[in-house]
Amino acid sequence: MPAPLPPRGRGTASNPFNRFAPTTSVALDDGWFQEVPPSRATEVRLETAKSIITRNQSPDLPFDRSVNPYRGCEHGCIYCYARPSHAYWDMSPGLDFETRLIAKTNAVALLEQQLSKPGYQCAPINLGSNTDPYQPIEREHRLTRQTLEVLLRYRHPVTIVTKGSLVLRDLDLLTELAEQNLVAVMISLTTLDDELKRTLEPRAAAPSARLRAIRVLRENRIPVGVLCSPMIPMINDMELESLLEAARDAGARQANYMLLRLPREVAPLFEEWLEAYYPQRARHVMSIIRQCRGGEVYDSRFGHRFKGEGPFAELLAQRFAVAIRKLGLNRRRDYELDCSRFCPPGGQMALL
């Protein structure tokens, strides 16, 4: 069957069975017609979570703990590496991931509880490691804002990764955190092309809105950088220098990038997207991805999964290194947050 175009405002038209499903079915084209995928409204299920701080031991990440107030992400980015996690809740990594969302209603209470444990050692908490903390449903549920209020109250450092302009709503909290060297923000910027963004990241903020977010955060003396992620061969990698320059002009002081990752169910969804929007170069794109991943579509090894290997990956790394040095986007000292101010719930605040 020809690759179907997603419903407007969604990243994919497919809703494949998750890998834990006991049975599967396959659609076959009988030659009569191609069904137009129906639109689907966003559903939000409320959940009482058992824990809220997720730990990791990855040497690839600059943090060892994170908080994700939501499961699933309405931004609908077709490449999102978090899509396979939806299978754990018996939902599809496809359309379900961007339409059937879960909000952790007790996130704030759990966070205070975990921060108050006697053995807790303070280190920066990341918001946005698995799904975007400023996706559209945050306007109603405000779990990210409530999380920031708790972290500010107890002077706990936090880093934020987002492609949502809604981050500016919390400028008051972010400004107070920044005054105490307790926050750093990374804005994910994938393309400057509005049409590419529309299909690649359908419900994320426009490129101009993300650059404005960088500008406003910088004007309010909040440490802000840019994350050019993912870099997709022959789709947006040619924009790398332009993305970095635009972010620098908006006020970013640090930059990073990641090569496209296609774990588990993400690979077939991404290939379907390529066939729908870039059929003439789809095979070429996948060929380069395999060259960067040892012949496979994905390589999960630490030290390789974010940057890849081989000629294309090495050239991309060299281009990035030259660009950030030229643009002055390698100021990492701006992002060393202060853990000494932390005062746990119920603890004695300093007098001075």
Rank of each mutant, 00 (worst) to 15 (best):
M1Q: 12
P2H: 12
P2N: 02
P4L: 06
P6L: 08
R8H: 11
G11L: 06
D29L: 03
D29G: 01
W32I: 15
Q34N: 09
Q34L: 11
E35F: 03
E35G: 08
A41L: 13
K50Y: 11
F63V: 12
V67T: 02
P69D: 00
R71L: 08
H75I: 01
C77Y: 06
I78M: 00
C80F: 09
P84F: 06
D90C: 08
P93D: 00
P93L: 03
L101N: 01
L101V: 00
N106W: 01
L115N: 05
L115W: 05
Y120L: 09
A123V: 14
P124G: 06
N126T: 14
N130R: 11
P133V: 01
Q135I: 00
E138K: 00
L148H: 02
L151I: 12
R155E: 12
V158H: 00
S165R: 10
T175Y: 03
T175V: 15
E179H: 15
N181S: 06
V183Q: 01
M186F: 03
T190G: 07
D193E: 13
L196R: 13
A206L: 15
A209M: 12
L211A: 06
I214C: 06
R215E: 10
L217A: 05
R221T: 13
I222D: 00
P223N: 02
G225Q: 00
P230R: 08
I232V: 14
E239K: 06
L243A: 02
E245W: 04
R248C: 09
R253P: 06
Y257P: 05
L259V: 09
R261C: 06
E265S: 14
L269D: 00
F270I: 14
E272N: 11
W273L: 09
R290L: 10
C292R: 07
F306V: 01
G310C: 04
P311S: 09
L316V: 15
A321N: 08
V322Y: 04
A323P: 07
A323Q: 01
I324A: 02
Y335K: 03
R341A: 14
Q348H: 15
A350P: 08
L351P: 09
